[in-house]
Every structure is written in C-alpha cells, then in structure tokens.
C-alpha cells in the first residue's frame, strides 16, 4: 500500500522507442508522455493539455497514433513506440517534416510533433488524400498559431513527396493550397 509517507513501488520499464530499447525505473502512475520526456529525455513529444484533447503528445504505438498523456509508461512495454525524433533528422527529414518546412506548416512549433506523427500514420493508410480529407485527418489536433491552412497544405505536399520518393522530390507546389482546397 502507498500512503502519504510510504514511497511508491517502482517498476522497471523497458520500451522500444524509435527502434532503440530504453529502460527506466518509474512508479506506475508515470504518464507515458512524462516517461518519454523526462525519464528518457526525448523531449520532442510535447504536452499541451494532459487530458487528451490537444494532440500535441501524439506518438505512434505500433504505428498507430495515440495520446501519450493517456497511457502509463508501464503499459508501453512490448510496444514499438515512434516519436517525432524517429521520423527524421535535420539532415534527413521525413516527408512530413520536409513538407511542414516547405509549406510553413508551423509557427511556434509546439503542437507540430503531434501533427507530424498523426499525419505520418495517416498517409500510410491514405497516401493520396484530397484537401478535404487532409483537413479532416488533422482535425484531432489543436494548433493555436497557423489557422491550419498551411498544415493542410503540408499534408498534401507530404503525400507528393512520398509518392515521388524514388524519383526525387518534385518542386514545391507553388499555388496556394487553394489549388486543392477551393472555397465552395
């Protein structure tokens, strides 16, 4: 039992993050988001609300986007986790990261990791979305800076980059997202 003056039992937790095994010893209540950020020092995953609404903490669990603030670290054993750090590096950005940079899909960058993980998984299953589908796909993540328009554009651009990954990236779509997302 735990009480005010009894230290909590600790659990050794080994997880695989971005293909690397990490081990840390934490109490059962350690949120997976805190575990990644503070126990493993993988601070790319951000925490915006801690009640599952904003999506900033979204990571991929066995490839599927989930809120890392709505899981405990002890529940992540035996799962393959992917965070924004695992989707590319400055010198070798992943397609979604590259698209965000090209399309001004971010401003302060705080919500961005959650969008990038979400969109990466989305494009795996929907490699060629329409603008409307792209907007729908990002509608579970909050951003306070961009107004989303350039994130929609980034989704479409990332789809292009993925499609032509073997051919070399095509030039940036110069038209506004308007080309794909016309007003009714």
């Amino acid at each position: 039992m735990t009480g005010p003056d009894v230290p909590e039992p600790l659990h050794e937790v080994t997880v695989s993050v971005n293909g690397v095994r990490h081990t840390a010893t934490v109490p059962a209540r350690r949120l997976l988001s805190d575990f990644l950020r503070h126990d493993l020092a993988l601070t790319g995953t951000h925490v915006g609300c801690e009640h599952g609404v904003c999506g900033a903490c979204t990571i991929l669990v066995d490839g599927a986007p989930m809120r890392s603030c709505l899981m405990f670290a002890v529940q992540a054993r035996a799962h393959e986790l992917t965070t924004v750090e695992g989707l590319g590096t400055i010198d070798a950005m992943g397609p979604v990261q590259q698209a965000f940079s090209e399309c001004h899909g971010l401003q302060c960058g705080f919500c961005t990791p959650g969008f990038i993980t979400t969109i990466t998984a989305y494009l795996e299953e929907n490699p060629d979305p329409t603008a409307e589908e792209a907007r729908d796909a990002i509608s579970g993540n909050l951003c306070r800076c961009t107004g989303y328009q350039n994130i929609v554009k980034s989704v479409l651009r990332a789809a292009e980059i993925r499609a032509s990954a073997d051919l070399g990236a095509p030039p940036l779509i110069d038209a506004d997202a308007r080309a794909g997302e016309a007003p009714p």
């Binding site: 790319g44 951000h46 965070t83 750090e85 590319g88 400055i90 950005m93 960058g109 990791p113």
Partner: peptide, 8 residues
C-alpha cells in the same frame, strides 16, 4: 528543420 525533427 530543428522544430520539425523534435529538436525544439
């Protein structure tokens, strides 16, 4: 490049 790769 820094912000989109988790380097913020």
């Amino acid at each position: 490049p820094r912000l989109v790769t988790g380097g913020g």
